[in-house]
Design a protein around this nucleic acid. Structure first.
Lengths: 163, 163
DNA sequence: GACGATATGTTGAAATTTCAGCGCATCCTT
DNA sequence: AAGGATGCGCTGAAATTTCAACATATCGTC
């Protein structure tokens, strides 16, 4: 029973392959994004969520869930984005605890500029290399893993497509 | 041509699914590892590579490549691991620039303890949820992405299985 | 063997992330 | 409507990671 739950060679290779692929891919994407637009992926992620949200704004807590940040990290991150003028805070009208992060017009321009380069890069690194079949497989695998980890409430807040 | 390289809906969903799955998975794995063993994944990764290496030691540069750290990050990380007594430094006998990171017996015990919990968790989060078919697919997808990003020299240094 | 080009590992400071805990608001039960 | 439980967002300090630069060593070539 000691070894019962160990990983066999195939599993080991699968895990390593997944791990390395995501590390290398994100590393490369980060590096390029930063070099070409000055934004880290974390900043880009926040701005890009806001840019898609109705009113170009989101509750802090929802934004944190969507970006998979804890609340503290998001708070600090919004501080910096606000200092740079890409985002501003606004009080929620319905919940006195609530703060809204709102994308400024300058922030919107910034994301757009970055998005162009970013998407290009993702395409080169991922989609140009995987067959249509593999893309479908990857999507399904991702969905299985995601729904296995996040509960329904979290998925909803992330804007995950519920069937 | 402006939109020629944009992502369509399927691609967008695939990318998001991959991104979210790896974030959530690593997040969860990190959190559990830390809670149960006190080690961050970065520390665990370093120690675990060393534990598998011949002589339980590696050149700093090779270890950095294997962990996908830059040299500076590895240097600081080894500082901390050395302070905790899990690792010690040793000069290379063949290259006067070289430093070897060597796993101490205490470090070895530490990884072993952590590995047990870690592997258990990876199994629950990943392998218990994916079919054999999906595991095979994921492995191949990972390999395609990895070889698309890292050059042959880097792969070799990572200990990547070359055919 | 001298030369510049490249590789190795470290350092210190700056930027970012993590961690523990706070104050306040809303929710839920009674 | 009082009470506690929970949710929200923020803060400051500690830990970690990033960044630019350095000193030294090896490599390749002439």
């Amino acid at each position: 029973m000691a070894q019962a739950r160990w990983l066999d060679d195939d599993e080991q290779a699968t895990w390593r392959s997944f791990l390395l692929a995501s590390k290398l891919l994100m590393d490369q994407v980060e590096r390029d994004l930063k070099k070409e637009s000055g934004l880290s992926f974390a900043y880009y992620d926040v701005l890009s969520r806001l840019s898609e949200a109705p009113g170009k704004s989101m509750r802090m807590a929802d934004l944190a869930v969507a970006c998979v940040f804890d609340r503290s990290r998001l708070s600090h991150t919004i501080d910096r984005l606000a200092r740079d003028g890409w985002v501003r805070r606004q009080e929620s009208s319905t919940d006195a605890r609530g703060q809204l992060a709102v994308l400024t017009p300058e922030g919107m321009k910034e994301v757009r500029r970055a998005a162009k380069l970013h998407v290009e890069r993702v395409r080169e690194l991922m989609f140009d290399r995987l067959s249509a079949e593999q893309q479908k497989q990857l999507r399904e695998i991702g969905e299985v893993l995601v729904t296995g980890i996040a509960d329904e409430a979290a998925l909803r807040r992330m804007g995950w497509p519920m069937d």
